[in-house]
Each structure stands twice: as structure tokens, then as C-alpha cells.
């Protein structure tokens, strides 16, 4: 809610910042997680997707064709090391606005993927 020229208006927070002449500062985090998983990168990402679908109810989880999984606006990617293809690196990236969920996901995925996951 901003007051300007003696009128009150309801605007988005981003718009309010602009009208106040302030710049928005984006704070982002990217965490690298090591994961032992003897599958291809694509299959590992599918397993991450299946795992998150079973744990997170009521969240928007998408498996996108460009090789990313998104939980709300949190981006998850998988890379593997060239020396040891079983040694995967999960990259999790989120903004400060999604801090709680990002922090939860990094803690959850650090524990690895459950056995018996398809």
C-alpha cells in the first residue's frame, strides 16, 4: 500500500519499490550436493523428481524438458563428474524469497535418495 499525491493505492511490492525510487536487490543461493547414484544424469533427476513428489504435498513440482526440476521457483539440476559417473552433483538454486523451502530441500536431498526408488 503506498500513498502518493494524497491518494492511497495498492500495488505490488516490486512496483512500490520502483515508485519509491529504490532498486531491488536479488539475493540468490546455489548449493552443490554430492550424491552417489549409479544412474544416468537424466535418470537421477527423474528419481529426484519422484522423491520430491512423494515428500512434498501441495507444492508445484515440475520436471522440465530442459533437464531441470522445479519446486515452486527452486531450480534443481544434476551433473556428474567425468572421472566417476556415479558421483553426481546436484545443484539447487533459490532466491531469498524462497529461503525456507530452499533450505528444507538442501537438507532433505543431502540425505540422499531412498532405496527402491524407481
Amino acid at each position: 500500500l503506498i500513498m502518493k499525491d494524497n491518494t492511497l493505492r495498492l500495488v505490488s511490492p516490486e512496483q512500490a519499490l520502483k515508485e519509491l525510487g529504490l532498486n531491488e536487490h536479488q539475493l540468490r543461493f546455489t548449493c552443490r550436493l554430492q550424491l552417489q547414484d549409479p544412474h544416468s544424469d537424466t535418470d537421477t533427476l527423474s528419481r529426484v523428481y519422484t522423491h520430491l513428489k512423494s515428500v512434498l504435498k501441495g507444492y508445484t513440482i515440475q520436471h522440465l524438458p530442459d533437464g531441470t526440476v522445479m519446486v515452486e521457483s527452486i531450480v534443481i539440476k544434476v551433473n556428474s563428474s567425468s572421472e566417476d559417473p556415479n558421483n553426481k552433483v546436484l545443484l539447487l538454486s533459490w532466491s531469498y524469497q524462497d529461503e525456507e523451502l530452499g533450505s528444507f530441500l538442501s537438507t532433505l536431498l543431502r540425505k540422499g535418495l531412498p532405496a527402491g526408488l524407481c
Partner: peptide
């Protein structure tokens, strides 16, 4: 207009 922190999964440090 932005800060990006890239770290290993070290939650206390982050």
C-alpha cells in the same frame, strides 16, 4: 542489484 552465494551443501556456513 544482486548477490549470489555459491557453496557446497554447508548449511551453517550458508
Amino acid at each position: 542489484d544482486g548477490t549470489h552465494i555459491v557453496c557446497d551443501n554447508n548449511e551453517p556456513l550458508r
